[in-house]
Design a protein around this nucleic acid. Sequence first.
DNA 1: TTGTAGGCGTTATCAG
DNA 2: CTGATAACGCCTACAA
Lengths: 343, 343
Amino acid sequence: MSVNPGEMATIKDVARVASVSVATVSRVFSGSVAVREETQRRIREVATALRYSPHGGARSLSTSRTHTLGVLLPDLYGEFFSEVIRGIDLAARRSGYHIIVSGSHNERCEIEAAMRAMRGRVDGVIVMSPNIDAQALIANLPDSHPVVLLNCTIRGSAFDSVTIDNMRGARGMVRHLIGHGHSRIAIVTGAAGNRDGNERRRGYHSALSEAGIRRNPSWEIPGAFTEDSGFDAARALLGLSVRPTAIFAANDSMAIGVLSALREAGVSVPDEIAVAGFDDISIARHVSPPLSTVNVPIAGLGELATTRLMSALLEKERHVSRRDVLRTTLMIRSSCGRAGHEH
Amino acid sequence: MSVNPGEMATIKDVARVASVSVATVSRVFSGSVAVREETQRRIREVATALRYSPHGGARSLSTSRTHTLGVLLPDLYGEFFSEVIRGIDLAARRSGYHIIVSGSHNERCEIEAAMRAMRGRVDGVIVMSPNIDAQALIANLPDSHPVVLLNCTIRGSAFDSVTIDNMRGARGMVRHLIGHGHSRIAIVTGAAGNRDGNERRRGYHSALSEAGIRRNPSWEIPGAFTEDSGFDAARALLGLSVRPTAIFAANDSMAIGVLSALREAGVSVPDEIAVAGFDDISIARHVSPPLSTVNVPIAGLGELATTRLMSALLEKERHVSRRDVLRTTLMIRSSCGRAGHEH
DNA sequence: TTGTAGGCGTTATCAG
DNA sequence: CTGATAACGCCTACAA
């Protein structure tokens, strides 16, 4: 009664109808202090009758805690990001937090704008910025709230970070190929300037040089992490006078594109050319032939980042920042030769 | 100066340092009313010096507009959701909105709790609830803010909705198979109780009956939209005394699992068994053989839902709710026979 | 063009 | 256990 039907009921409405003070209603809903059983019941009844529920924004203005995490991503395309978000959401919800995500942030200014816009809406932020140039500039972000870097580190910064051991993973896979007798190994790299891609290429280089194999620049084809770019790269490789005997793609999507191009060209895998990928997305084991790849705990990446952020939130003052590096696992299937041994 | 270094600067700090009133600072940042050039410049200088940026939460408390959209999803797994989110994020950002996403809501109570928790944090909500049971109960959600239903409709409710024409898409694909001489057509359905899955099955039934083909219950294998469930379903089908000559999977992930199982069993596709999927995820054209499927404008689904929500937000009072149904397109590739004609 | 003051919905402090 | 009341950070008439 006497509640504006169009608007939403506020704590005042509930207090008035239940004949108590707003303070008491607040106590009931935040569960902080004890309220008499009888009073409490009455308040809850009135609240449901009025369809009242606390206003999150107002609550956080008063407590200065939003119970929300910001997630800044370069893109939202493909299974990789979907998995990362899933991991973050899982861990966040477990702690009663929401996440507000924002994609397509590659430029420095965009990231800064997004972070600014999140001021007062989040308690902390997870930032993924694989673009090299942007990284240098993220370094001096306003430290309005705790930040955890995902898949990117910044020298000298005090930010927490969670990354994948791309270098070791790639090196392991290339070593495996070399161990199976391959020496003409090509790579389809990630987008230029992409940190993960660059590290994976470094791993490739490292494995080659430790085996005394000289690099061949024409066997390093730039890709863009998409199936189509893998497809194109493979076609380029097939056009070479000296073909490689193995192709290592910097991610699974490109590897699948490679498989597709080879099939179309009538090149048998792995007999004529071996193929390997990186990430181990769920489809990898179901393509033809099943794709050898480097397993990355993608959702785990998001979960760990969230965990770190949460602890930074709690410890608040004097939180000692840390850098976690997630290990990868070699998944040897048939695309790179039969009967491989797990690493 | 005289600004607490640990805390974040507020509008008051800026006003004090710039020797103006908070109102003027506010005007500069909201750009509503004109402020003298000179004054404006000074304020901006002070603001950057103090690293000030408006507090979103406080701002929305006084304007009662959060510039944020809530997105409730049943799950966050796989390329489908990733694409939907991408579409929503794209459209939302275009209008200067953020999105706060929340996954794993299948039960009615979870959805309600999530919506309650979003009170005061969002201006409107996009809800995807493919679970049949939940739908009946969503009907009486608190109408705290505008809602757009994604891929689910509720009889008699006044909610806007954006859905895919699953029925027609599936029927078209099955008709195509029939047109190519198949009559023993199996289906791997979606999870029981999933609306999309059910409608696709209805389309399958419809195509069969209009062609005078009797259904065979043992050719309707329940799946779960995952590669693995498609794999298992195909194995079950292969074990039958009378095998189907075509398998229609209710989504691409399962179709890929089916292909994988058939290959492993040495069954050639499409010669011995034709295979078709639904969704047309980007990998579909790159698997072996390239997968015939039903193209769904997934990101478009998210974009349209956002557009509808935005207009509901603007029109506010007396917004006439509408139901959009997105058409699908048949993508005939080689997994269901050669030289098909596009629909 | 600029300043003053009230209010947005909650929580927290301090009395009773 | 409960009730006033001052924040929280910002916006917006209303005045000047």
